[in-house]
């Protein structure tokens, strides 16, 4: 479940990313009452098995069973909670069309949330890896090795969000960033899911990589994520 918004006296509009039906918005009636049996199951971060009934404008939620409740583990750690919120918002924004199946985005989000909960990696790294990979699934894969304009293999020393990633010396555009070699290595590892390399990275490279990923995400989405400025990054 991605988001819950209050509706009327005791209802909520819930937004879910489903395996087979893409992003779905539905009304959950009475879930804000303490007597609700499904209110506790319908919280953001919950991985649920849900049944809808067809409504006039929005469908309604009739049954909910919890598969995994990631929220309980994440709220106890503020940096993981804020990273998770940015992941939920990204998933919502990258699935612009409702009910358009996006199995890969679904699997990526579930995997990302599971990684946040298991505490095996730094939450900032998990978030950044999720962001670049979800952009790649959406068709906006940044290029961290080959030049985004001519395709020549790197390593390169320039990065331009508008051009789509790394640029060679010949194609370097004015206003391009000049990340360190270690930053490019980390960016590539985050995109490929190479956790051995990512975990070994230094805080300077992590800081630079997260800044470039945020800039690239904002460029592609045209409107920045609301949650990203609130993400608390450890040691970055």
């Amino acid at each position: 479940m991605l988001r819950a918004q209050k509706l009327g006296e005791a209802d909520r509009i819930v937004t879910l990313l489903t395996r087979d039906h893409g992003r779905v918005r539905a009304v959950a009636k009475g879930v804000r009452k303490t007597s609700s049996r499904i209110g506790a199951r319908l919280e953001p971060f919950s991985h649920v098995d849900v049944q809808f009934y067809e409504g006039r404008t929005l469908d309604g939620v009739s049954q909910v069973e919890i598969l995994s409740s990631y929220g309980a583990a994440l709220v106890g750690d503020y940096s993981r909670y804020t990273a998770g919120q940015a992941m939920l918002e990204t998933a919502e924004r990258l699935t612009a069309e409702e009910r358009e199946p996006t199995v890969q985005q679904y699997l990526l989000l579930v995997g990302g949330l599971r990684a946040l909960v298991t505490n095996e990696h730094d939450p900032g790294l998990i978030l950044d890896s999720y962001l670049v990979r979800s952009l790649a699934v959406a068709g906006w894969a940044p290029s961290f090795d080959a030049c985004a304009r001519c395709g020549v293999t790197g390593p390169h020393s320039a990065f331009n969000v508008a051009a789509g990633g790394a640029l060679c010396t010949e194609d370097r555009l004015p206003g391009s960033a000049a990340p360190a070699v270690e930053t490019f290595t980390l960016l590539g590892a985050l995109l490929a899911g190479d956790w051995h390399t990512a975990d070994a990275s230094q805080s300077r490279a992590r800081r630079e990589a997260s800044g470039l990923i945020a800039a690239y995400l904002n460029w592609q989405l045209e409107r920045g994520l609301r949650s990203l400025p609130f993400v608390e990054r450890n040691g970055a």
Binding site: L88, E89, R226
Partner: peptide, 9 residues
């Protein structure tokens, strides 16, 4: 309450 997704920090 704190809700980054709603822009409340």
């Amino acid at each position: 309450a704190i809700s980054p997704i709603e822009g409340v920090g």
